[in-house]
Structures are given as structure tokens and as C-alpha cells.
Simulated assay, not measured.
Amino acid sequence: MPIPSRAALIEHLVHTRIAGDVATPRENNLSHYRKLANGDRHYWLGLELGDRWSDEQDVLAVMAERCGVVDDPAHRQGQDTIDPELTVAALERMAARLRKAAVDRQSVLFATGHPGALLDVHRATAAALRAAGCEIVEIPEGLTADEAQVWQFADVAVLERGATLWHTHSPNPMAAILDGLEAAGRPRPDLVVADHGWAGCAAQRGLDAVGYADCNDPALFLAESEGTLQVAVPLDDHVRDPRYYHPMTAYLLAEAGLQLQP
């Protein structure tokens, strides 16, 4: 796959609505910000936020700064945005951490709560790091969480129920993996690359973690602002065709000095 220039990637992100005018409506974003501020742990994504973000307007300010949503509190419904410049800048920060993992040949764990969209992004990143000499962490067998199985598919941990890979924001599957590794006497990963509660749980437990997040998932951006999560990449995490993420993945790996594997 050709590696896009920065300008070409930004154009692609806007055209496919991975960034720019995204499909997530403003009222959904604000509802999630309010619920997080009101202490609904479903929206904390495995992080411990205490009462530090109890003001919805503080959450909105961080989301405007780090994700690019409209910063006007009076804008209550309709279109909302992700700034593609912020998306690419975060990809570049993530690439720097991946480059370090490759240079140091670190162990890396991949996981996704959005297998319908981001599975191949994680799979391709895992393959590139393995080719560079990294250990891709294999999760223990027999793990369960949220009445489902925690499996590894194409090097990426996922939640499986009824022969279906599940979309989940829960931190419990990542907790099951980390607890399982400890019970087996195995070391913790040097780096976790994930999204949703998988990334939040890993970061909360003190692991180096980077992840992807949508504009209605503020917790990871708050964690990045506090230094708990190393990088949160803002994007629409479920556009209609997962192939739309391929140029983004190619750019990420090139910036990390990694080779996209066949």
C-alpha cells in the first residue's frame, strides 16, 4: 500500500469521515460528557477519575483541545467534529512510542473493543512490530469476562460471545488478561496498544498504554491530559468500511519506521 503524505492523509480522513465532520452527533457527545462528569463508571473506561472531572464544561474543554470538537457550550445539537490535524499529530506521537518498542524489542499486547472497525489496524501494527523483533504477548487460555470469552484473534485480544466478536467498552476483559498473566507468573507487557476500556484499564494499572478513541469517549483523552495514558488518537472508531483505515495504518507504521507486512 502506498504511504500517504501528511496532507493526503488529512484529506482522506476528512473524505471518509474518520475525522472532520463525523457521524457522531453533538447531542450524543454532550450526553456522554455529562454522564462521565456525573460519575457513571461505564463512561470512565476502566480509569479512576475521582471527582476531578465533575464539571461537564471542563470535560468539553479537554475534548475541544485534544479531539477538536466544537468548543462552544451553546452548541447543543447537530454536527460535531474531530480535527484531522489532531488525529495525525496523535498518530505521530503513537508512532514515536511504537518506534521505541521496536528499538528496545519490547513485549506488546494488542486489544480492541471495536473489532468491526479497528481489528485490522491493530493486527497490521502487531505484525509490523513482530517483524521488527518485538514479542507480541499471547494471552492465557480460558479467560472470561462479562459472561463472554476473552480470545486472541490475529494477535489481537477481543471479546467473543456466541461465535461473534463483540463491541465492548468494558475494562473487564483487559483486567482478566492482566490478572491471568500474573497468575501464570508471566511478566506484564511493556506496552499496550488498544482502545476503549482495554486501554483505560491498562493505563490505570500503570502500564504504558496508547489507544484510539472517538469523540463520544472522553475518558481516554482526560487520561492523556493527566499523563495516565500516553497517547489517545481521536477518530471515528466505526466508519462504514474498515478498509478506510488502511492509509492511516500505513502512515502510522511509516512514521514509526516499521514495515507494513504482506
Rank of each mutant, 00 (worst) to 15 (best):
E226C: 05
E11T: 11
R6E: 00
P242K: 09
S225N: 11
Y212M: 12
P187C: 02
C215T: 10
E27C: 08
G68M: 00
T168H: 03
I3S: 09
R243P: 02
R52E: 15
R52N: 15
A250E: 14
A37Y: 05
G142F: 03
W198Y: 14
T249C: 12
A89F: 10
H75W: 11
A145M: 08
Q259W: 13
L159T: 10
P187G: 00
D51C: 14
V59R: 04
Y244H: 15
P218L: 00
R123K: 12
L129T: 00
D21A: 14
V193T: 00
V14R: 12
A145Y: 06
G180E: 02
D146P: 02
G113A: 02
D72C: 13
I139R: 04
V156Y: 06
T164I: 15
L258M: 03
L165D: 05
L220D: 01
A124R: 15
A95S: 10
Q230W: 13
R205G: 09
A96C: 06
D55Q: 03
L91E: 07
E182R: 06
L98E: 03
L129R: 00
T81R: 09
K35S: 09
T144Q: 13
G211S: 00
R41G: 08
D104N: 02
A19I: 12
P140F: 03
R26P: 00
V22A: 15
Q152L: 04
N29D: 11
P4N: 15
E27V: 13
A102T: 01
E160P: 06
N29P: 09
H246P: 02
A145Q: 01
D190C: 06
P247C: 12
A157K: 04
V158I: 12
D55F: 06
I10G: 03
L191E: 09
F110P: 05
I136F: 08
L49Q: 01
D83N: 11
I177K: 00
G200E: 05
R240V: 09
V192G: 03
L181E: 02
T16E: 15
Y43Q: 04
G50W: 07
R41W: 08
N216C: 14
V70H: 03
Q106P: 04
L36F: 12
A148Q: 08
A117M: 14
D236S: 12
A199W: 02
V231H: 01
V103I: 08
D40P: 06
G257F: 04
H32N: 12
A74C: 12
L159H: 05
R17A: 12
L260I: 09
A176C: 10
C67H: 04
E226Y: 01
V62G: 03
L191Y: 08
P247T: 13
L47Y: 01
Q149R: 12
R243V: 14
V70E: 10
T24Q: 11
H167A: 09
P173V: 11
P2Y: 01
L36C: 01
P84G: 07
H42M: 04
D21I: 10
E160Y: 07
A8D: 13
D104F: 07
P140D: 11
I136T: 11
T164V: 15
E147R: 14
P247Q: 08
H238K: 15
P218T: 09
G197E: 10
